[in-house]
Design a protein around this nucleic acid. Structure first.
Length: 564
RNA sequence: CGGGGCGUGGCUCAGCCCGGUUAGAGCGCUUGGUUUGGGACCAAGAGGUCGUAGGUUCGAAUCCUACCGCCCCGACCA
């Protein structure tokens, strides 16, 4: 493409509202333009990158036998009501005003409906179906450029199997395909065990890119391959356990003590044996959650433990239900509560907790003697520096951007939409499903996050919009123009996509800055200085290395570089 | 949805606190000329309902109210 006519509106200055490097650079390089919050237009050079990423995805999906579909984004709301997801998506689901339709935020319902209509026999299984399609989600707060948008491209695939063993195979195939997709896209990533959330299902993993701007938090071990989203991460933190002492519970006056730290200071002991009480309520039952000391409750883990979402009680509810205010609540003498505790507190004794009477605590509590605990669950958020559950080395806690998520859905959607098949014995069974997503924009944004410098983007060959950037330094020199034209044609003829800066009246410095900003892997610079000796200059974007070569050798040199 | 910030030519911003001719700068754009290896220079131009609506005032970009939009933090995030 000739830059003189190609629409690439580059910007010298940073857009005021972009904070992340990828966002800034995508706007500056003329890849995208904002239309509204979380909604972007893709300009020609950005769309070229998008298409290359999509092509990598297609190749790897096709390689595991997946078949590409294209489903409607407009869906009758009725289908979404059948799976209960109008409610579970809530305000995130876009509803049309003048028809009972929604804009699809994902496609489990529609793919399952097709499966229900046409998959009737075990002979029809397995199937792997996918699409690359625009998704719509009314995000309460779009952010970080294209990373969290209200409209975005997702590769979503769905597997249909006869049982869970077969599902494991389909799931495994996706996991491997995803690794290839991200590796080929030039992204450093890691895989974490994840929380299935409202998707339901029996297991899931996320593909993550470490980034201080990430919205997720993960625990990772640099020694072994343990990595997990904090929503499910565990550590080998020691249980509180039992200690000497067989005293009976005793009330203790603790005036104006509200926090665990104050209590520890007041009693001159460590925080570990202080059983912190947190009070939640789900739709029916009040729940008392006991944690050791200052361990932080992870609400995602709480949801998993309870099987439903619970909300923290307001201060007014607290005193109504417990008779005390926050800071003085405990498990002893509490009526009508479901009481659960973190695993670290399992069977612990010599604990101190609130007395459900303001300014009083109870000492010498033995959980196996004095309290009826309805269950011990892993409820705490792990912290950096705790020992890895698999190898014991220190865990790191990092922020990360989710670029893919794979789910073993099981039969949640097939049951609610009656997608059944007949097995060899003529028994009707629900199809066992998996669903797998990739955020296409996020691949691009994360690639730029990981591959840029102060001057601009540094594309990997695999997704670079062009392979070579030909710069004609001086358009007023006939020799320079003739040589640049000729090289540009030669690159085209050799099947090497080239961007040719043939703009008139643009100073050399301006062209060089644009070339670095746009970030093609190789630049071929044609100027009078080198041309006198019959040479042109190659500049390799990533290394910054420059090399002067004869005009006739330029194409071969570039070819060799691109192959290496 | 809670907290904070912002809205002034295409872009980045000043002016607003303390109201007062014709609303500014840099970049970009147009024309002419000079330049040509790291975001050139000179000259002459074009381009703005100061987010919208109401209010206060003799007078509003500036003060007040409401609304809209955008960004950041939090909540939320299959």
């Amino acid at each position: 493409m000739r830059l003189s006519t190609y629409f690439v509106p580059t910007l010298k200055e940073n857009p005021a509202d972009a904070t992340m490097a990828s966002h800034r650079l995508m706007v500056r390089a003329g890849m995208i333009r904002p239309l509204a919050a979380g909604i972007y237009s893709w300009l020609p050079i950005g769309w070229r990158v998008m298409k290359k990423v999509m092509e990598i995805i297609r190749e790897e999906m096709d390689a595991i036998g997946a078949q590409e579909f294209q489903l409607p984004a407009l869906n009758p709301v009725e289908i979404w009501e059948q799976t209960g997801r109008v409610e579970s998506f809530g305000d995130t689901l876009f509803h049309l005003k003048n028809r009972p339709f929604v804009l699809a935020p994902t496609h489990e319902e529609i793919f399952t409906t097709i499966a229900k209509d046409h998959i009737k026999s075990y002979r029809d299984l397995p199937q792997i179906w996918y699409q690359i399609q625009t998704k719509f989600r009314n995000e309460p707060r779009p952010r970080s450029g294209v990373i969290r948008g209200r409209q975005f491209f997702m590769k979503d695939s769905y597997t249909f199997d006869r049982d869970f063993t077969e599902l494991d195979k389909s799931y495994g195939a996706h996991r491997e395909a995803y690794k290839k997709i991200y590796s080929r896209s030039g992204i450093k990533f890691f895989i974490v065990g994840a929380y299935s959330g409202a998707m339901g299902g029996t297991g899931s993993q996320e593909f993550m890119v470490e980034s201080p701007d990430g919205e997720d938090t993960c625990a990772v071990c640099d020694n072994c391959d343990y990595a997990a989203n904090l929503e499910v991460a565990t550590s080998a933190a020691k249980p509180v356990g039992r200690t000497d002492g067989s005293k009976k519970p005793e009330e203790l006056h603790t005036p104006n003590i509200k926090t665990i730290d104050q209590l520890a200071q007041f009693l001159h002991i460590s925080t570990e044996r202080l059983a912190k009480s947190l009070v939640y309520k789900d739709d029916t039952t009040p729940v008392l959650v006991l944690m050791s000391g200052n361990d932080q409750l992870n609400e995602a883990k709480l949801t998993t433990a309870l099987g439903k979402t619970a909300f923290a009680m307001s201060p007014e509810e607290l005193s109504k239900y417990t008779g005390a205010n926050a800071g003085s609540i405990g498990p002893i003498g509490l009526k009508d509560f479901r009481i659960i505790a973190d695993k670290r507190l399992e069977n612990a004794n010599e604990l101190i907790s609130g007395a459900n009477k303001d300014d009083y605590h109870i000492t010498h509590i033995d959980f196996s003697r004095d309290v009826k605990i309805d269950g011990y669950y892993d409820l705490r958020s792990i912290e950096a520096g705790e020992p890895c559950p698999s190898c014991g080395k220190d865990l790191r806690v990092v922020n990360a951007i989710e670029i893919g998520h794979i789910f073993k859905l099981g039969t949640k959607y097939s049951v609610s939409l009656n997608a059944n098949y007949l097995d060899e014995n003529g028994t009707e069974k629900p199809i066992v499903m998996g669903s797998y997503g990739i955020g296409v924009e996020r691949i691009i944004a994360c690639h730029i996050e990981q591959n840029h410098d102060d001057n601009g983007i540094i594309w990997d060959n695999s997704i670079s919009p062009f392979m070579v950037h030909v710069t004609s330094v001086n358009m007023d020199s006939n020799e320079v123009v003739a040589t640049a034209d000729k090289l540009y044609e030669e690159f085209n003829a050799a099947g090497i996509p080239a961007l040719y800066d043939d703009r008139h009246g643009v100073s050399p410095g301006f062209k060089f800055k644009d070339a670095d900003l746009l970030g093609m892997p190789v630049q071929v610079i044609i100027g009078e200085r080198n041309l006198k000796q019959g040479n042109v200059e190659l500049k390799f974007r990533k290394s910054g290395e420059r090399k002067v070569v004869g005009i006739g050798a330029a194409v071969e040199e570039v070819k060799r570089f691109l192959k290496s």
